[in-house]
Design a protein around this nucleic acid. Structure first.
Lengths: 329, 329
DNA sequence: CTGAAAGCGCTAACAT
DNA sequence: ATGTTAGCGCTTTCAG
């Protein structure tokens, strides 16, 4: 396979000139340029990024850290990141951490070893200490999820407010016994969403019933089913459930159905994320929409700015409550 | 940031020795090794893959080409590929082509430019000619989808047989008016599945009714809804539908429900792929399971073998019909 | 506008 | 067992 030397030789110019033609920055005489281009054509030359990357001390690869690829919530965000990255000549390495520190470390190593120029972390379970240390030397952005108190730029929504609005909607639909299906409160967003839930209840004079708050280990379908099973066994059965992820909510839907109850007549359900599937269920799911694609593009822009040494500020984006059949069938 | 030179200097040895310690192949005296390791520790040294990659003329990155990340069908396959790749020190670049030749070409360029060592293509819409040309110079494996007649190793299942069994199951459940929801027959797997469908009908003396065959542009939920809408308008309404993807089938489910009909009493439905979500619907979906994780690991193994110059043969894996509520509620 | 030459960080062949 | 050295393929001063 031809390299830049051979092209230079064939074209009768120096490698520097070939490089100039390749990068199109410096001025090259039209005639010379033509010669070089012909040589490139003739030799079927493709510049090697390996050489270029070493020379430039960059990999033009950015890491996306997600807990699991199976949660559709990440799709649109990833698309946003990808398109923005691509437009800036960066490629993305999608890294599934399975929320495991060991796997996480494999990927962190990639930036330590210069195989990646930066990281967009969407993993709430990420080892915050490591991330913090890393962020002193490398470009890191937190997207959607973020650890509090750490000085790493993030893009996210106001979880407390979103949660507040979702619960308020349920209250306005006449519900007073509202269950919360939350994930572990070691995650900041989980604490925030619980606070929004409480604020809505308080504001409407509904006393907090701790029996109505359920914690799940993960945000998946099965966890939603299990939690819903417990909820349905309560003496004073809630008439509504607010789940902090759509998959949880869909699990709840399924379980309610299995128990022979109807949504929303017997139990209303609200999810969170507006994943594609939330519109495929029967009934369709009321849910909180995050501007995922936009969040992705912004995260990518922030990261690239950071990589290139520019200053970046954190961003909080708007969200929207999408009312569908599961609360107002 | 420290480089190998500085480590060598600090340890009072040559760079070659440091490299030896790093790679652990050649023999190094324990004492020397200790000195080097201390230097590495002290200087916080991390070997740069940029230098190593250039030197070794490899990137240790493999490309996965998929039409869209939104189809959960790919999850398990990707996990399989990823785990196998990781265990061999390869990383994966997930590339969404959107079935667009332009985007495809961006990714092909990555291997032309040595940024990737090989490709696992799962995109049926891939430009077969380009792929063929590429495969003469680079390592390429087709996974799950493959173009016929091209001499590129693949791993897949027997689509014709899988389709045959799915339809046979419907016939055995007493159905005789069975619709087929297929994708464009420019794809080999679509032609094969149609053939399996026909074989099952023929074998049971059911005449082929062309009105019962529907083609969709994509394999998504919306396409399933649209096709089902048309199916429900037929004078002689089919009593069963075989869709070549779970998402199509789930769209059909939704539409049947919307029309006030029941599954499987009024219309039975069979999908294809056994995506996670096929178990979350109501009713749960009868579907054809492919050994996706295994397919992924095999594809990765094949690719790495190919990259490293070993010979590889194509593989056809077993499938399984998973009978659930949508055909035998 | 073009060329010569240095060097990014690493590995491996060769020499000792 | 260890050191010396020549590149891998590219970009970018610096001279001319």
């Amino acid at each position: 396979m031809a390299n830049i030397q051979q092209v230079a030789k064939y074209a009768g110019v120096s490698v520097a000139t070939v490089s100039r033609v390749l990068n199109g920055q410096d001025k090259v005489a039209v005639k010379t340029k033509l010669k070089v281009e012909e040589a490139i054509q003739h030799l079927n030359y493709e510049p090697s990024m390996l050489g270029r990357n070493l020379r430039n001390s960059e990999s033009r690869i950015v890491l996306i850290l997600i807990p699991t690829i199976s949660n559709p919530f990440y799709f649109e965000i990833i698309k946003g990141i990808e398109n923005m990255a691509l437009s800036q000549n960066y490629n993305i390495l999608l890294c599934e951490t399975d929320s495991s520190p060991e796997k996480e470390d494999i990927y962190f190593d990639l930036v330590r070893k210069k195989m990646a120029d930066g990281i967009i972390s969407m993993d709430p379970a990420v080892n915050v200490e490591t991330l913090k240390t890393l962020s002193e030397k490398y470009a890191i952005i937190q997207c959607s999820e973020y650890g509090g108190g750490v000085d790493i730029p993030y893009v996210t929504i106001d979880s407390e407010e979103a949660s507040y609005r979702a619960v308020k909607h349920l209250i306005q639909m006449g519900h007073r016994r509202i269950a919360l299906m939350n994930s572990d409160e070691k995650f900041l967003y989980a604490r925030e969403r619980r606070m929004g839930y409480q604020r809505a209840l308080e504001e409407h004079g509904i006393p907090l019933n701790k029996e109505y708050i359920f914690y799940t280990k993960e945000l998946g379908f099965e966890q939603g089913q299990q939690a819903m099973k417990k909820i349905l066994q309560l003496k004073e059965r809630p008439s509504a459930v607010f789940a902090v992820s759509d998959l949880l909510a869909i699990g709840a839907l399924k379980e309610i159905n299995a128990a022979g109850l109807r949504v929303p007549e017997d139990v209303a359900v609200v999810g969170f994320d507006k994943i594609d599937f939330s519109n495929m269920t029967n009934p369709t799911l009321t849910t909180v929409a995050q501007p995922m694609y936009k969040m992705g593009t912004i995260a990518a822009t922030m990261l690239i700015d950071k990589i290139q040494g520019r200053h970046v500020d954190s961003v909080v984006l708007e969200h929207e409550l999408v009312i569908r059949e599961s609360t107002s069938g």
